[in-house]
Design a protein around this nucleic acid. Structure first.
Lengths: 361, 361
DNA sequence: TTGAAAGCGTTACCAC
DNA sequence: GTGGTAACGCTTTCAA
């Protein structure tokens, strides 16, 4: 590996000083360096294929242009990777790079991950989780501008800003979608309450009934889990043995996997989707919802948008933080959108698993 | 943010020179620094909460201890994230950090991603893909030690080393599993041939018949796609309308999603799995295979192992490379395991979707 | 208009 | 056994 060209190499080749090179290549040549020299410098840089050493730059500028992302299991699980993709895209646009550390769901690794990142002099920190949940924010995280994506500070005063999906509204709009198709006996299959996603989506479901002036039948709400088998057994409980007139005409699921389970159960019982029963998912999971048979109507989580919004806010803070520190006017705590909680709406996706309510129901 | 303590701060507090601090904190104090001073230095470092600035270290050592990972869509897709997790775990063990750039399947971004990473002075590069495939290795990738994970150099001479799953053997062992249950009329549902995964798994399937001295019925091999609907329609073609005696007794799928589609089709046709028909997946997809109804027998991809193996090889190269360069004895090309292709075996996972062949078949 | 020098935080070498 | 100094590659200030 032939060592990369340095600014000095360029200066030599162009027959000028290092400073001139720096000036010109940073756009501050005009008025400082002779036009002829500028030309020669640019040429030299081009032929030597020169790009400044980011490490030296970081040291000099006391800014690494690295954003640290710690996640609970975004890397290892198949979910929510698009939060990071959205965040990374924004970072890249601004000349930042992200380094992500996945704790693989081991909370005791949080502090260590943040420490490692801090040691690397990251300019900002983002915590991303799989599934909405309260987060015990690692203490050392607040030493640089920080933000939370898909999770929120579990302390009441909410020290760190957060970007989360509007799950209540998502649940409500899902229910309203099937209501608009004439359904009234609507079941809701949710995961456990270990994460707030389920309760919030259920809350939205209730809101829809309230708004419609309809009573909520609590027996129709089943908290069963998050996986295919849970959906299957939940649906069996709802449908097996019930006469056609007494079973729900629509089943709303808190994620697409549950919906798979529900459809599986329907088929097993000889029921058609959506003719006999409408089924809805949640998440619009990549290469699942769209390719199911039938293709799943679902509520898409705004993952990319959340990541992008979080990164945009964070980068704003990073910049402010820097100028503040430069001015010596410490903001003292409260970075990262300063405790603001931003809600991003979900997006209804109508496909083929939901249809008009059967005749007579 | 109160600026972090530097070695100078520690030296001052301990009343010694910076060099002494450096020596002691790097374990080379004994025989160089008075024991009493060593003690004071350690204390000072502790009270100041001193950790060396990695950026300065990188500049000084001309080694960033960062490994760049570029991926086609590992971040954005739900698959294969465990390759990166496995790689990252090994990197972390060795004091390295990984930064991954996802090109989101846009091949034209490859060179740029590598460039960005190179600018950041990464010590090594890894390319990771979703699904086995030949890779047109970005030219600038070979400027530092490099390795491929789940992909292989598309040039015949294979310049860059690679770690890939043994798909042929995986396909063979899948077939042998159902054969051991007495099945003889076995169908294989594969994705398209755009990636070599399908052909290789099919090859393995054929090998199993060959080894068993059985003829291969080519009409039983269907290349339909990779998603749920493809599995559904493929299975329909195989099963719908066929008398019980003329349909395959087992369907092997090239991934778990296809298997979901197959099970869906079976249920729709009133067939039981595995009583009437055995179904096998491939990948052991997280939170899919295990929770399907019935739980899917499948062939697990050795994702973590592949990532770990690739990173181990790469790190070895990084170290050699360094010493070589230091000695001025350029290896000149051929880094990254020097074109070696390492195969990692898949792992058979038997669950409930495969069972003994039905009576009379 | 140009170039010299200081400084970012380390470590390693070399006098003392 | 100790501490000063140079060097890593860059930017920026200041003097010529």
């Amino acid at each position: 590996m032939n060592r990369k060209a340095t600014a000095l190499d360029v200066a030599k080749l162009a027959g000028v000083s290092r400073s001139a090179v720096s000036l010109v290549l940073n756009g501050r040549g005009d008025g400082n360096v002779a036009l002829e020299s500028q030309q020669r410098i640019r040429e030299a840089a081009a032929t030597l294929n020169y790009t400044p050493n980011k490490i030296a730059l970081s040291l000099r500028n006391r800014q690494s242009r690295i954003i640290g992302i710690v996640s609970d299991q975004v890397v290892t699980s198949p979910f929510d990777g698009n939060i990071i993709a959205g965040a990374d895209a924004v970072a890249r646009e601004h000349g930042f790079v992200t380094v992500v550390m996945d704790t693989e769901l081991d909370g005791s690794r949080d502090e260590g991950a943040v420490e490692t990142l801090l040691d690397r002099q990251v300019d900002g920190l983002m915590y991303v989780t799989v599934g909405l949940r309260p987060l015990h924010v690692p203490a050392n995280m607040e030493r640089v501008p920080s933000i939370l994506a898909n999770c929120f500070d579990d302390r009441p005063e909410a020290g760190v800003g957060a970007v989360i999906p509007d799950e209540v509204r998502g649940g409500r709009e899902a229910a309203e979608h099937v209501m608009s198709l004439g359904h009234r006996d609507i079941a809701f299959l949710a995961g456990d309450s270990l994460t707030p996603a389920a309760p919030r989506r259920i809350q939205g479901y209730r809101d829809a009934f309230l708004r419609a002036g309809l009573p909520v039948n609590e027996a129709r709400v089943l908290q069963v889990g998050w996986d295919i088998d849970a959906g299957f057994h939940g649906a069996m409980k709802l449908l097996d043995g019930a006469e056609a007139g007494r079973r729900p005409t629509a089943i709303l699921c808190a994620n697409d996997r549950l919906a798979i389970g529900v459809v599986l159960a329907c088929y097993r019982l000889g029921l058609s989707v959506p003719q006999d029963i409408s089924v809805m998912g949640y998440d619009d999971e990549f290469r699942v919802a769209k390719s199911m048979v039938p293709a799943l109507s679902t509520m898409a989580l705004p993952l990319r948008e959340m990541g992008a919004a979080a990164m945009t806010a964070l980068l704003g803070d990073v910049t402010h933080h820097r100028t503040h520190v430069a001015e010596g006017s410490e903001t003292d705590g409260a970075p990262g959108g300063s405790g603001t909680e931003t809600m991003v709406p979900c997006r209804l996706v109508v496909r083929e698993s939901t249809g008009p309510v059967p005749e007579g129901r």
